[in-house]
Amino acid sequence: MNINLTLIGQSIAFAIFVWFCVKYVWPPITAAMEARQKKIADGLSAADRASLDLELAQEKAAQQMQQAKEEAAVLIDQANKRAAQIVEASKDDARKEGEKLIEQARAEIQQERVQARDALRTEVALLAIAGAEKILETSVDAKAHSEMLDKLAAQL
């Protein structure tokens, strides 16, 4: 318990240890700790940003989905309308075509009837002439009596 040179020795040792700690121990350790802190802070903020980005992206995706749905609905609607129109138009066409065909058929029938009538008329005229010839036992000059024959044909 005597106070002696140990006191001074201890003070010197203390000074040397403190100097060493200030110079070689403290700076690298605290620097590393600060660097790590910064790294962690950066990482956390990056994670925050990423989650925000994700949220935005999800929102955007949902919006686009909605928009796509709406567009599809419009397209389907248009297609349906168009299909209905086409069906309607083709029905129309078919009807018109049918009517036209019927008309043509009618005209043909009429024509054939007229032709048949004409032919019949001519035939009847010839028959009449033949009959007359039989009756008169003479031939009838077709030329001389053509006027009369035409009149007759017209009356038939």
Partner: peptide, 29 residues
């Protein structure tokens, strides 16, 4: 012996502990 004396054990062990401390921390640093 008065003031002109050294406690060899005190100085030795305290320096040993100081060297242990600084050696360990320097090793890590």
């Amino acid at each position: 012996m008065g003031f002109m004396a050294i406690h060899v054990d005190t100085l030795g062990w305290s320096i040993a502990m100081g060297v242990l401390f600084l050696g360990l921390f320097r090793f890590v640093a």
